[in-house]
């Protein structure tokens, strides 16, 4: 039987390794649903503030290969497509050279043109994002309720 700690994904500290208290705190906040504090700490930990993490590898691999038109160009390298160009299409329908978009998505999860986001493998980021979506949904519902009552 696996022990309690390894089941939860913990491992013993290596020699000289210091426990990552920050990561434990983030996990605690995430699991207890305290998203405002979680977001604050994630932003404090990440360099350059709120820049988003890389796109999930599965989502990147699932981007469909497409045939571009020859007079179009890739917004990342600005080169025109030719017959040999391998292109991928984002969910927002923007197309790029495979090499260009893959390099970009290793760094951040949004479309270089319209910033529409792909899913990430970062659990904290995804938790905050879902929380924000729910919040804006709630606000919209509240607004429509308000409008229907007072218009």
């Amino acid at each position: 039987m696996a022990d309690y700690f390894s089941e939860l994904g913990f491992r013993p500290l290596a020699e000289g390794e210091v426990p990552d208290h920050g990561a434990h705190l983030l996990r605690l906040l995430r699991d207890s649903g305290n998203f405002d504090l979680l977001q604050m700490f994630v932003e404090l930990r990440g360099e350059g503030g709120s820049s988003a993490p890389a796109a999930s590898k599965a989502a990147v691999q699932a981007l469909p290969l497409v045939q571009p038109l020859e007079n179009e160009n890739c917004a990342v390298c600005l080169k025109n497509y030719d017959e040999e160009s391998q292109c991928r299409m984002m969910p927002c329908k923007h197309k790029f050279h495979q090499e260009c978009i893959f390099t970009w998505l290793k760094q951040t999860n949004s479309c270089p043109i319209c910033r529409k986001e792909l899913p990430t493998d970062d659990l904290d980021y995804e938790a905050i994002r879902k929380h924000k979506e729910r919040e804006s949904e709630r606000n919209q519902q509240l607004e429509s309720l308000h409008n229907s009552m007072f218009s």
């Binding site: 350059g48 503030g49 820049s51 917004a75 990342v76 970009w104 949004s110 270089p112």
Partner: peptide, 9 residues
């Protein structure tokens, strides 16, 4: 800074 996008010029 963090809001850079590769399609910007």
């Amino acid at each position: 800074k963090d809001q850079w996008a590769a399609a910007m010029t």
